[in-house]
Design a protein around this nucleic acid. Sequence first.
DNA 1: TCTGGGGTCCTAGGACCC
DNA 2: TCTGGGGTCCTAGGACCC
Length: 433
Amino acid sequence: MIALIDGNNFYVSCERVFRPSLNDRPVVVLSNNDGCAIARSNEAKALGIAMGAPWFQIRHLRDSAGLVALSANFELYGDMSDRMMTLAAGLGHRQEIYSIDESFIDLTGIRGDLAERAHKIRSRILRWVGIPTCIGIAPTKTLAKLANHIAKAAERKPGSYPAELAQVCHWGQLPSNTREALLAATQVREIWGLGPKLTAQLNHIRIHTALDLARLSPSVARARWSVLLEKTIHELNGTSCISLQDTALDKQEIACTRSFGHPVTDRRELEEALAEFASRAAEKLRRQGSHVNQVMAFIRTSPFRKNDAQYSAYRIQPLMEPTDDTTRIIRAALEVLKAIYRPGFNYSKAGVMLMDLQPAATKHLTLNLDDELPAPNPELMLTLDRVNDRYGRGKIKLGAALAGEKKRNWTMKQERRTPAYTTDWHSLAVASR
DNA sequence: TCTGGGGTCCTAGGACCC
DNA sequence: TCTGGGGTCCTAGGACCC
């Protein structure tokens, strides 16, 4: 059996731990730039706020419905996630951390009543970390996701599901007619791995529910669509095809991309933004212990500004030799900008991606293949990372990423950010007497 | 006025080989 | 009129995830 445990409305729940006054109120957490809602409390969902709803479209609910909006505070969420995951691991012997708020846990070899055990872990996480969770238990990952989905729905809408399914749903314990009824009540779109495109195509051949899909021939699914859909069908029928991945693999690519707080036209400003993104990406690269062979950079206008002329371009810059040196990575990103920049556009977004990564250890000899480049400087990079780890991100930067005299239109808007309660001494909550 | 960011996997098709 | 067959590797783009 496999369990899927995840935090309910995770970002909102993290904020509520430190601001209990947000309980029972409609709350959303906004994406970078305060652009759109990326987490919603149950009360906010009840107001009809969709995932990804632009803030300017729902802002009126502040006055009419008491909606509270907060800027995303990823430092806080990451730390709360670590605490939650550590306790969740107690469910079984192996854990796959699937996202910031979800993990799969292998329950093989665990004796006793699994649902009871899940309830215990759940209340421990609630008590010690303050995050409410739901748990699905099933023989495959796809069914565990589905069971988790049911556990949440049963908690949120008590009338429409059997009460014992709320919070913890143990698929394996359900009678087969109940399982069938639940599959029939689940829309195809809600199944893990089925997005809008596949859903539309399946609906077209009159497959609407999880039960319909479970009855589709796997080989037909493979021939007409792909091996992914074939696996999903097997998984819905209880045959495990997607294994637990309990050791985190190195990233195959590393990206840093941002939308700008205001439109940017100036080339100098784009240079500054790309240099900053390249630096951030290089830090992630060194933390993973990898070297990069190709640097991709892009700039684009906003497709939402219908009256603006549109332009979007990217290019991949191969490096002379694999490196983790910020200076070289910035240089490559700026080479790309030189090639793709066109004046006269309102740029709204840019980014740097590091592709074709390899472990740093496999590089045996260093050739200085390009005389014009300064030699890589590992000591400088080490110092840079140490200082920034200790005193906060971006305290020291290389010249290209420094602000010019101009105002920085490209920086993010974050007007409603809460403090980093758990990772910054100066932001600790104070208990007053 | 105002619409996120960071990933993975699969497939089709082209280049190239003998 | 009619112009092989089979294989590998790589890449761009699509679809999906949270």
